[in-house]
């Protein structure tokens, strides 16, 4: 589903990612963890080209996104993204947030888009909020709407950039529950997170990044109980 080959990214002189290669299968749930500044968010943002890679090839669903002739805007339709700070459209209602892109980009009729939107709101448990504006929602509710908004485009792949980091502790669970449900439904997911519980419980694989390098990867159980590298060990010692 995702094939990353020799990905590097620099901001000026500062190399944030160096030579990362990885394959992710369809339906796989992969957690990306690492200390702050390790480049994990940049790595995620390179996958849908929100950041332009300095070097390397990124192939998503068989399409080379880094090729010059690729229509990146079109390709992004198949890649859903959820941000730490939600970024819902504040001037649109919850339902309009969900139907905007399907109507404008996928050319769905308003009726079809609304039907689909309501279905998704039901799925994330927010059916009663369709006419509310984002600013009247709690953080957890906003993030669930953001997930539904991304799903409304029927992506083949979902990227999550620290989806629970901006939430009050008591709202983390409701968002993680939605993500778990999504993982069980067979969605391919790439999740940058500080929620080690989620990484351990739900992920099929954990990637550990440090200083722009993919230092270690493996199954969560093995990684958390017996990390192979010193750096991963030091990181886990600090947070667990």
């Amino acid at each position: 589903m995702i094939k990353v080959e020799h990905l590097s990214k620099s901001f000026g002189q500062n190399e944030v990612l160096s030579d990362i290669s990885i394959d992710i299968e369809k339906g796989e749930v992969v957690s990306v963890i690492g200390p702050s500044g390790s480049g994990k968010s940049t790595f995620l943002r390179c996958i849908n080209l929100l950041e332009k890679p300095t070097d390397g090839v990124i192939t998503v669903a068989g399409q080379d996104l880094t090729a010059k002739k690729t229509n990146v805007t079109k390709a992004r339709e198949t890649i859903g993204m959820v941000f730490q700070h939600f970024y819902l459209f504040p001037h649109l209602t919850v339902l309009e947030n969900l139907t905007y892109a399907p109507i404008k980009v996928k050319k769905l009729t308003k009726q079809d888009a609304q039907e689909k939107g309501r279905e998704l709101l039901k799925r994330v448990g927010l059916s009663d909020k369709e006419d509310a504006y984002p600013n009247s929602l709690s953080g957890g509710q906003k993030q669930r709407v953001a997930i539904a908004r991304a799903l409304a485009m029927e992506p083949e792949l979902m990227l999550f950039d620290e989806p629970t980091s901006a939430l009050d502790p008591e709202m983390v669970k409701e968002v993680l529950d939605v993500m778990k449900d999504l993982a069980h439904s067979g969605m391919t997911m790439l999740v940058v997170t500080h929620e080690m519980g989620f990484a351990r419980e739900v992920a099929d694989r954990v990637l550990f990044l440090d200083q722009g390098l993919l230092v270690e990867q493996g199954e969560p159980e093995a990684f958390f109980s017996a990390p192979k590298t010193e750096r991963a060990k030091a990181f886990l010692d600090k947070i667990l």
Binding site: L50, R76, M81, F83, Y87, A101, K104, V105, R149, A150
Partner: peptide, 16 residues
Amino acid sequence: KGQTEAAVALGVPYRE
């Protein structure tokens, strides 16, 4: 800036 990123990530073209 997140508004732009959210729209871009949904595949919305610049004009729209």
